[in-house]
């Protein structure tokens, strides 16, 4: 477990900023305690300082997970967000997409969101902007990328994909073994 290098931090922040923008600051500079990012087995964990201290007692090989896993660095050194980061993305998300109850399940099975399932969308959402997906009851379901801008969403036909799926809470079941 080690702190992230500058390069890694930059890559990760760039990725995160697609979803929550400058709200990353609120993650880094938290008023309720010191929190930090740690790299462990190519995965980035967001840990409270207290837990970090406790985690020092566990050897590197045995430590499976500590804090909240935000995602992992691939072999090509790109950062990939995991669904476990949703808890921290959802409150700070800038662009949101609400799916209709009928389309919820489809999304939770890993499918993209089509126009017909789109219930509500934040205005001024750009194309390929990172979005957090909510159910109509405002329960965060996952996140993805807007395939169409808000203006385009108005015009496309109902079966067109408006949001690309990246992660959903269904992964907690589907990828139970790999999620840490």
């Amino acid at each position: 477990m080690r702190p992230l290098t500058d390069e890694e931090t930059k890559v990760m922040f760039e990725k995160l900023s697609k979803y929550i923008g400058e709200n990353i600051k609120l993650l880094v500079d938290r008023p309720d305690g010191t929190y930090c990012f740690r790299l462990h087995h190519d995965r980035v964990y967001y840990i409270s300082e207290k837990i970090l201290k406790l985690a020092t007692n566990i050897s590197r090989g045995k430590l499976v997970s500590v804090g909240t896993c935000f995602g992992k660095f691939t072999k090509t050194q790109t950062f990939r967000l995991h669904i476990t980061a949703l808890d921290f993305l959802a409150p700070y998300a800038k662009y949101k997409v609400w799916v209709k109850p009928g389309a919820e399940q489809s999304f939770l099975y890993g499918n993209h969101i089509m126009k017909s399932g789109l219930g509500r969308i934040t205005e001024n959402t750009n194309k390929y902007q990172g979005i957090v997906v909510y159910s109509m009851a405002d329960v965060p379901l996952g996140f993805g990328v807007a395939a169409k801008s808000t203006q385009e969403c108005r015009k496309v036909d109902p079966m067109a994909i408006v949001a690309l799926h990246q992660a959903d809470v269904g992964e907690y079941i589907r990828n139970e073994d790999t999620l840490t």
């Binding site: 949101k96 509500r120 969308i121 205005e123 808000t150 969403c153 108005r154």
Partner: peptide, 11 residues
């Protein structure tokens, strides 16, 4: 389809 502002307050 509904479009909401940036300041849309999630319940």
């Amino acid at each position: 389809l509904e479009v909401v502002g940036d300041d849309f307050v999630v319940k």
